[in-house]
Amino acid sequence: MRIMVAVKRVVDPNVKVRLLADGSGIDLTGLKMTMNPFDEIAVEEAVRLRELAIASEVLVVSIGPDKATETLRTALAMGADRGLLIKTDAPIEPLSVAKLLRAAAIEEKPDLILLGKQAIDDDCNQTGQMLAAQLGWAQGTFASNLAVEGDAVTVTREVDGGSQTVRLVLPAVITVDLRLNEPRYASLPNIMKAKKKPIAERQPADYGIVVEQRLEIVRLEEPAGRLAGIKVGSATELVERLRSEAGVLS
């Protein structure tokens, strides 16, 4: 079985982003970038399936600028076999990402595609589902467990109020949630080894795809911050204030 994993380069989740002074965009200069945390989980799962000999090859794909090769290298250092960079400097929406991944999938013929459930920058939570639709494949979102059995994969999904288990016919697309696994660190020896693993490079035009912007960004704002309130001296004072001042207790 061959697995394709999509990985995105995003701002480190521990960094608080700010707008450019003129509000025209997000100030990314000098910010620490990293692999989208959910994608790390997807890579980890693929590598585990590879180590269990359930998968024979793990291909990682990233769509973005040259710098995204660093994200691919991280995935290779975690244990993926080879990388594919689809190079574009333009901002790119999930719909176009899905189209490019579909094109790559048609060429690479994976049996399973893993993605993070959402990217922590645009918080869209769309790409995997769109890709599944475009390929006409089954989808399993928010996976917290998965087991490959023959030509199907059983996925436990984190859903509101509990969990749901579904069985998907392969090939399928799965988006992963935080509790699927704990991703390994890219170890120093593996980082050096990853240097020798191949990364192919393509342009969207190679697939005959024009990257378009369906959404126009009209405005960006930082939400009005909440102001710190007061410190109360005791539990009794707290209850009293919640009742008389805030009016949230009857």
Binding site: T34, T69, E70, R73, T74, A77, Y185, A186, S187, L188, I191, M192, K195
Partner: peptide
């Protein structure tokens, strides 16, 4: 270098 950055990132994460 790219490798140095990745190594630094792994160490920092640990």
């Amino acid at each position: 270098s790219q490798e140095q950055r990745l190594m630094r990132d792994s160490c920092r994460a640990f």
